[in-house]
Amino acid sequence: MPDSTLAHAPQFDDASQQRESATFGMWIFLATEILFFGAMFLGYTAYRLAYPAAFAAASRHTLLAFGATNTAVLLISSATMAFAVRAAREKRRTALTVRLLLTAALGVLFLCIKGFEYAREISEHLLPGASFQFDQPYASHAEMFFYLYFLMTGVHALHVTIGVVLIAISGFRAWRTDAFMRNDTAVDLLGLYWHFVDIIWVFLFPLIYLVERHS
């Protein structure tokens, strides 16, 4: 929606060029994020190909109910975020505020479930390190699985945390300030980031929780 009446920074010709630049910047950031997470997915692939039986045994120790619930929570939060972006474009303040805060709340719920899951795993001695315990003969290779598990879900959870903070701040700004309602670019970019974090989880979920579940 080109709107030349919007204020724009001096380095841009008009508001629509400013908007396109900001959007392009977010997509470039997401492209670099593909490579950032990609390196960890590569490490996972290399170790899983090397130690398939240990990875299957380790995966069966992950808590599928927690993981599946969290996947649903994140997918639903992506939908509420899409609705928030729609409300921002339509300049509907109450709808935008409610949808952003609902998305942030679902993000918090995801982090809480993840936290309970981590606590269970740590109490079952699955955190790699001195106290790690796993049935032989897979102990050392299962430890590699759990190292990758804590690394990848931890970095993902960090992304969720950043998203929750930014979405919650945007929710309060939508509620409180008129300037925020005039320009919907920020909410659009936040939506892109949030959906991307969702996509990362969509791949993490089967690789962590669903390895050889049938046997």
């Binding site: 892109l192 996509i199 969509v202």
Partner: peptide, 13 residues
């Protein structure tokens, strides 16, 4: 997972 990604990319993003 790839199908889910396509849905998210097309309809949400």
């Amino acid at each position: 997972s790839a199908a889910k990604t396509v849905l998210i990319l097309v309809f949400f993003m």
